[in-house]
């Protein structure tokens, strides 16, 4: 009996500790977003205010940048997924020459430090007239995020037994029909998982958005960065909190859609 009380206590302490680790940093941001005056070493701000929240919602700047971020993210998801589906099907079902090297090639934009990669890309885009407009950012994001959707969707297709397609073919369905009636519907959870991941990555991406979007385009992360550099930590906190919302939706969706076997067959 005593033993189980001890265990119970340990369990509760552990859970509280984990919550502190996970939620602690968020608490700081939430407090900052309401702080008017907050000097060190006081644990809480000296004065609270709603001013910054109101400011964010009144000033078009912040909301505009959020809308812009969501638009870019949605376009990126659309291009990235549409490009990845046929490519992933090829990788999953056919023996392509240099398969592994090709798969690794898509990793390149993510394999090196983001700063040099995107500064170089920005200078190339500059010559092509793609700087300072959202299509430049969408293109950069699509290129860089293709690896996520490609790898996740390839793994999804690989996890679908080829017999499921062969039965359909055996019953008279053409290859095209087999894909749309069998393979694609079964792969939808994996495709959604890939899309969510790309969406979140694009929403939070700073470097490419900053260098390619400048000076006319300010996505939410860029705005957050400039506000916090301008010592406006409160505005940055408010934006950060708003940016968390998609992540929360992501957590809920991922729990519903992403199955362990998709991840397990990654790269296999």
């Amino acid at each position: 009996m005593k033993f189980s009380i001890l265990r119970m206590t340990l369990k509760v302490v552990f859970i509280i500790f984990m919550l502190l680790v996970m939620i602690g940093p968020l608490v700081g941001i939430v407090i900052w977003s309401f702080a008017r005056v907050w000097y060190w070493p006081s644990p809480l701000p000296q004065e609270f205010t709603l001013r910054y929240w109101i400011e964010v919602f009144k000033q078009g700047r912040v909301l505009n940048s959020l809308v812009l971020s969501v638009t870019i993210a949605l376009l990126t998801v659309a291009f990235s997924t549409l490009l990845a589906i046929p490519a992933a099907y090829g990788f999953a079902r056919y023996r392509l020459p240099f398969e592994r090297i090709l798969l690794l090639l898509f990793l390149m934009p993510q394999a090196f430090p983001q700063l040099p990669v995107f500064i170089n890309l920005a200078s190339i885009f500059g010559r092509m007239g793609l700087r300072g407009n959202i299509w430049g950012i969408v293109l950069a994001h699509t290129m860089a995020s293709l690896v996520f959707s490609l790898w996740i969707i390839t793994a999804t297709f690989k996890s679908i037994p080829v017999e499921l397609e062969q039965v359909a073919q055996n019953l008279g369905a053409s290859r095209f029909k087999v894909f749309w009636t069998i393979t694609f519907p079964i792969a939808i959870p994996g495709i959604i998982a890939g899309a969510i991941y790309v969406f979140l990555w694009s929403m939070g991406e700073f470097t490419a958005a900053f260098f390619i979007g400048a000076p006319f385009i300010q996505t939410a992360p860029v705005l957050m960065y400039t506000s916090s550099m301008g010592y406006n930590l409160q505005i940055a906190s408010v934006i950060a909190i708003i940016l968390i919302i998609p992540s929360l939706i992501f957590m809920i969706l991922i729990e519903r859609f992403l199955k362990a076997e998709y991840i397990a067959s990654l790269g296999g």
Partner: peptide
């Protein structure tokens, strides 16, 4: 018509 060893029923 082929009957597959693992049945290959469509889960969806």
């Amino acid at each position: 018509a082929m009957f597959f060893q693992n049945y290959a029923l469509w889960p969806h």
